[in-house]
Simulated assay, not measured.
Amino acid sequence: MGNQMTEMLKGTLEGIVLAILAVRPAYGYEITAQLRDQGFTDIVEGTVYALLVRIEQKGLVDVERVPSEKGPPRKVYTLNPQGREQLAEFWRTWSFLAERIGQLHEGEK
């Protein structure tokens, strides 16, 4: 990813992860894999895990430790009501910005 893409992604990754968790609970590796499947191929697991710690500390997710066949229990993250509110705010902000940026882009033509 280019530097501009990296910087823009930093500002939106929390909302993207919350959107993934709005569909269903998931653990860190599942989230990373889904991001990569969506085309975010340069995202590393460490970035996702650090973000999961932050959203857990903010109280946006509930965490359950689920036994794993391979190694220690997995932390499964579920979006809670506070997280759903934060996601709704993210989508409102995203819609506002996308509309304004679209207007600027159309104005260039």
Rank of each mutant, 00 (worst) to 15 (best):
K109V: 06
V48L: 03
Q57I: 14
Q34L: 14
V48E: 02
T41S: 11
L13Y: 01
G2I: 13
R74Q: 14
V53Y: 02
G11M: 11
Q38P: 00
G15S: 01
G46H: 02
F96S: 11
G71R: 13
L104M: 15
N80D: 12
R84L: 08
L35N: 01
Q86I: 00
L21G: 12
Q4E: 08
G15D: 08
G102F: 03
E7K: 07
A50W: 11
G39Q: 05
V66R: 14
P67L: 03
R92C: 05
R65N: 12
L35G: 10
V61Y: 09
M1D: 10
A98N: 08
I31F: 01
E56A: 15
I20G: 05
E106T: 00
P67R: 12
L9T: 14
Q103M: 14
E56Y: 06
L35M: 13
E45H: 05
E64I: 12
G15T: 02
S68M: 12
E106Q: 02
L21N: 14
P25Q: 04
E106H: 09
R24L: 10
R65M: 10
G11S: 06
D42S: 12
S95A: 14
N80S: 13
Q86N: 04
L52A: 06
D42P: 02
P72R: 11
D42V: 04
L60S: 02
G2F: 03
Q4K: 15
R74P: 09
R92I: 05
E85S: 08
P72E: 12
